[in-house]
């Protein structure tokens, strides 16, 4: 596609959005019970789990990427494990591997906002629900979920945004295969390496506008929710 006279390949953009969307969905499904479980935990294991989940925040993405590369290589633990379930093919340098990597990388951005939201729900509301004969799952669906809408909104946004912005893990695990693992951040890096500044400018500008738009949308919604839920 021609933009400002430069030939721009849009495929990395679509791939980035696809991976970010799938990762966000997976993380909401895994992260919700995980965050709830940790929030409700009283034992000292809680500290260990919280630290483990926060690791991707402090580790250089290359370190995380390196370990992921080890467990996802064709003879790695994760690959072997998935083979048991009939998985064929390889994880490294593939879209599947990239999504698995993103799930690890973005985990804290889902779990932490959800934990904050869950912690803000007073225990007595759940006690009240229990005396009104609601069982644990029922309480979660009818009390906890509606009262943590904001938390979910924040979690989904941050997860999506961070997955879009990841670079290190992708480079280590996914490489740079067009249509498979070449996401926008890699594509921009590529263009800069090849001194194609025009293309890099256009892609970076698009990312900038897109990110700003998503964030404004979310904060706008959040404000409106705020009035409703308050």
């Amino acid at each position: 596609m021609q933009i400002f006279g430069a030939e721009i390949d849009l495929q990395p953009i679509w791939l980035t959005l696809e991976i970010a969307t799938i990762t966000t969905l997976i993380l909401l499904i895994i992260g919700t019970p995980l965050a709830w479980w940790i929030t409700r935990m009283r034992s000292s294991v809680k500290v260990v789990l919280e630290a483990l989940i926060a690791l991707p925040l402090v580790l250089p993405p290359t370190v995380l990427g390196f370990y992921l590369l080890i467990i996802m290589n064709p003879n790695g633990t994760l690959t072997e494990f998935l083979r048991w379930f009939g998985f064929e093919g390889q994880l490294t340098f593939s879209k599947t591997g990239l999504i698995i990597g993103s799930v690890f990388y973005s985990l804290p951005f889902t779990v932490q906002p959800l934990m904050h939201a869950f912690e803000a729900i007073p225990q007595r509301l759940l006690d009240a629900a229990a005396t009104l004969r609601a069982h644990a799952l029922d309480q979660f669906l009818t009390i906890v979920l509606p009262l943590s809408q904001r938390g979910f909104l924040v979690a989904a946004t941050l997860t999506f945004a961070h997955t879009v912005g990841e670079f290190g893990v992708v480079l280590m695990v996914g490489g740079n295969i067009p249509g498979q693992t070449r996401v926008v951040s890699i594509d921009i890096f590529d263009h800069v390496e090849n001194l194609e500044y025009t293309e890099a400018h256009i892609l970076s500008g698009m990312m900038l506008v897109f990110s700003l738009f998503v964030l404004m949308l979310v904060y706008g919604l959040n404000r409106r929710f705020g009035v409703k839920v308050g």
Binding site: P122, R124, L125, D127, A128, A129, I143
Partner: peptide, 8 residues
């Protein structure tokens, strides 16, 4: 409950 614990 002490503060009613109504579902907000």
């Amino acid at each position: 409950f002490q503060d009613a614990a109504l579902f907000p």
